[in-house]
Simulated assay, not measured.
Amino acid sequence: MDSQVFVVSGCREIAAEAGWIFELIADPARQPSWDGNDNLSEAPTGQRVRAEGAVFTMTLTTGGVRDNHVVEFEEGRRIAWMPSDHGHEPAGHLWRWELEPVGDGRTRVTHTYDWSRLTDEKRLVRARSTTEAQLRASIDRLAELAERG
Rank of each mutant, 00 (worst) to 15 (best):
K122F: 09
V109T: 01
D120W: 04
I25N: 02
A51G: 07
M58H: 00
T130E: 06
M1K: 14
I25G: 00
T45A: 13
H93P: 02
T62H: 08
R78D: 09
D85V: 10
A127E: 12
V55K: 05
S84L: 04
T107F: 00
E13M: 06
K122Q: 14
L124Q: 07
V109F: 00
N37G: 12
T61I: 07
R106Q: 10
T107R: 00
Y113A: 07
Q47D: 08
R117D: 10
S3Q: 10
G105E: 01
I21G: 02
R48F: 06
D27Y: 01
N68P: 11
V65L: 13
T119R: 15
W95S: 07
L145Q: 05
R78T: 12
C11F: 03
G19T: 01
L135S: 02
E89L: 14
W20H: 08
K122E: 14
R50D: 06
E75T: 14
S3C: 07
H88R: 08
R77K: 13
E121I: 15
F6C: 12
A127Q: 10
R123A: 15
F6G: 06
P28C: 06
D35A: 14
F73E: 02
H93A: 12
V71Y: 10
E74V: 10
G87C: 13
R123L: 15
G87W: 02
P90V: 06
A133L: 08
E72S: 14
E147K: 09
S84M: 10
E17C: 04
N39H: 08
P83S: 11
E74W: 09
R106V: 04
A26K: 04
I139D: 01
G46Q: 05
L40T: 11
I79W: 02
I14K: 01
Q31G: 04
T45L: 11
R78K: 15
E100R: 07
S3M: 05
E132R: 08
L60N: 03
A80L: 11
Q134Y: 12
V125R: 08
R12G: 10
